[in-house]
C-alpha cells in the first residue's frame, strides 16, 4: 500500500527529509537520538514492511553495537575511567557513551535515507531539480530509461554467446575474460547504434526547438501548505530550545544533559511529533478512510 505522506507534493517530501536528517545528525541529545531512531525505524517498517525489518535487525543493530564499541578504543577523553586496556590506554565511560550516541545517529540517518528512497521516487526528484536545470533533468530521465535496457541487453547477449559455447562460467580465466570483454565491446556498439533511433525519435517530436517547457504531474494543495507550516513551527521551536540552552548535551569531559524536567519534556514531545509526522498523517488518513467507508 502506498503511504499517505508519499502522495504529498515532492517539495514537501524533500524538505521534510532534508530537515529531519540534518536534525538527526546534529542533535546529539540522547533522548532526541532515541526519538529519531525509533521514528525512522517505525516509518521504514511502514514503507518497506518485512524487508526493512530484516535490514534493520540484521545490518543496523550489529553495526550500531560495533560502532559503539570501537569508539572507546580510539578515544580516551572523559573523566570516568572504567579500566585500562592492555596497551595501557584508559577506557572511559564518556567515550563508550559518545560512541553509542554517534552510532545511533549514524544508524538513524541510514534509516531515514531508506525512507527517503522509498518516498522520493526518481520522477519526484526530477521534478524538483528539473526546474533548476531542465536539460539535465531530461538527461537524467533518459539515463533511467537506458540503464534497465542496457542491463537486459547484456543478459540477452550473454545468453546468446553462451549458446555459441562462449559463456562466462567455463574455460580458463583468460578465456572468460576474453568473452567478457567481447560482450562489453559489442554493448558499446549496440548502445551507440540504438541511440541513433532514439535521437531520430526525439528530433521528429520537435526536440531542439526553442522554448521547451517542463511538464509535471504534481500540483501543490492546501494540505501541503498546512503540513509545511506545522513542520516549520515545530522545527523553529526545537531549534529555539537548543539555542536558548533549555535543552543541551555534553559528552566530554563528563556527561551532562537535560533530563526529564517538565520544560525539556515539552521539547521532546515536539521533536517526537516532528519525527512521527508522516506516520501520524498516514494513520489519520487510514482512520478517515475507515470512517468514510463505514458511513457510506
Amino acid at each position: 500500500m502506498k503511504d499517505a505522506f508519499s502522495t504529498y507534493h515532492p517539495l514537501v517530501n524533500f524538505i521534510y527529509f532534508a530537515v529531519v536528517i540534518l536534525f538527526s545528525m546534529f542533535l546529539m541529545h540522547p533522548v532526541f537520538l532515541c526519538i529519531s531512531f525509533a521514528s525512522a525505524f517505525l516509518y521504514s517498517l511502514r514503507l518497506n514492511g518485512k524487508r526493512a525489518l530484516k535490514f534493520n535487525l540484521l545490518f543496523l543493530v550489529p553495526f550500531l553495537l560495533v560502532m559503539a564499541l570501537l569508539n572507546p578504543l580510539f578515544n580516551h577523553q572523559g573523566v570516568t575511567i572504567l579500566f585500562y586496556a592492555s596497551s595501557g590506554n584508559p577506557i572511559t565511560l564518556e567515550a563508550v557513551l559518545y560512541g553509542f550516541a554517534a552510532a545511533l545517529m549514524f544508524v538513524s540517518v541510514i534509516c531515514w535515507f531508506s525512507c527517503y528512497n522509498a518516498v522520493m521516487t526518481s520522477d519526484k526528484f526530477l521534478y524538483l531539480f528539473g526546474r533548476v536545470i531542465p536539460a539535465l533533468s531530461l538527461v537524467f530521465s533518459m539515463v533511467l530509461r537506458f540503464v534497465p535496457r542496457f542491463k537486459a541487453q547484456i543478459c540477452v547477449i550473454t545468453r546468446a554467446q553462451a549458446c555459441m559455447g562462449r559463456d562466462l562460467h567455463s574455460g580458463n580465466l583468460w578465456q572468460r575474460m576474453k568473452n567478457g570483454v567481447q560482450i562489453l565491446s559489442i554493448m558499446v556498439t549496440w548502445a551507440l547504434e540504438h541511440s541513433i533511433e532514439t535521437a531520430t525519435s526525439m528530433k521528429s517530436r520537435g526536440y531542439g526547438l526553442p522554448g521547451r517547457t517542463v511538464f509535471s504531474i504534481f500540483y501543490p494543495e492546501k494540505r501541503d501548505r498546512i503540513f509545511l507550516l506545522l513542520f516549520f513551527a515545530l522545527s523553529v521551536f526545537i531549534l529555539a530550545g537548543f539555542a536558548c540552552g533549555i535543552v543541551f548535551v555534553r559528552y566530554y569531559p563528563a556527561l551532562g544533559f537535560t533530563g526529564f524536567a517538565p520544560v525539556p519534556v515539552i521539547f521532546y514531545i515536539g521533536y517526537l511529533a516532528l519525527c512521527l509526522l508522516p506516520l501520524i498523517i498516514d494513520l489519520v488518513e487510514e482512520h478517515q478512510w475507515k470512517r468514510f467507508v463505514s458511513i457510506t
Partner: peptide, 20 residues
Amino acid sequence: EQIVTDKVWHELAFGLESLG
C-alpha cells in the same frame, strides 16, 4: 528505441514539452 524517457506520463508529454 523510440521511447526517450523512463515514465509513461513523461513520454506522453515529451513532444508537447518540445513544442513549448
